[in-house]
């Protein structure tokens, strides 16, 4: 038990430190690297909770795809980050007030009475103990059966997002040389090779 607690504090501490550094780092590339560190440590926290599926997804999706995409964006776009940060002090008071209000609300919620969830509600899809069934299998049990509607609807949302992104960004540029495979394949010898009769000592 004590080991678990120590590991928890290590993961939690590194996560918070890394998160602070994401905002504080001067070099944007360093920010993204710290973000990846924060993701890894949050994944560790998930493993401690017994949610190994979410931990793996966090690493595969967020570190593997999202963070790498961020790195590309940061490196490819020429954004002046110093200029972006100049508004920080200006927005600090209002941001601080909003943060404070949220904090107070959260504390109020924590103080609110807890509601005992009726047993009948939980019984519809009982969560199996970790020893019996792993997370991944337990999610697989319901994802394509009980939640098939939500799953398919999420698919439609992603589909719309994809169509929308293409609509807003794809533009036909004229004057760009493209490979046209059909043209290449349909070339005939007669169109492309010309036989010239060259007289000796005359040149072309």
């Amino acid at each position: 038990m004590i080991v678990q607690t120590i590991v928890f504090y290590i993961f939690a501490g590194v996560t918070i430190g890394a998160a602070v550094m994401v905002v504080a780092a001067r070099n944007p590339v360093h920010s993204v690297l710290f973000l990846i560190l924060a993701f890894f440590n949050s994944a560790g926290l998930f493993v401690l909770m017994g949610a190994e599926f979410v931990a793996m997804i966090l690493i595969i999706v967020y570190v593997g795809a999202v963070a790498v995409l961020f790195l590309f964006v940061v490196m490819m776009l020429d954004i002046n980050f110093v200029e972006l940060r100049q508004g920080f002090l200006q927005y600090l008071p209002i941001g601080g007030v909003i943060g404070l209000i949220l904090m107070i609300e959260l504390i109020m919620l924590l103080g609110a009475e807890t509601v005992a969830i009726p047993k009948t509600l939980l019984a519809t899809v009982p969560i199996p103990p970790i020893e019996d069934r792993t997370n991944t299998a337990a999610i697989g049990d319901v994802l394509y059966t009980k939640y098939i509607y939500a799953f398919q609807a999420a698919g439609m949302v992603l589909f719309t997002a994809m169509v929308g992104a293409i609509v807003l960004t794809l533009r036909e540029r004229s004057g760009v040389r493209k490979q046209r495979i059909s043209n290449q394949v349909s070339r005939r010898r007669a169109e492309s090779v010309e036989l010239k009769k060259v007289e000796p000592r005359d040149g072309l």
Partner: peptide, 22 residues
């Protein structure tokens, strides 16, 4: 969940349609 997914599907398409004259 169904409420949120429907709302989001509708909104995503509407955002793009609003910006359709690029």
């Amino acid at each position: 969940i169904a409420l949120y997914l429907g709302l989001e599907l509708q909104s995503l398409a509407l955002y793009v349609l609003a910006a359709f004259r690029r």
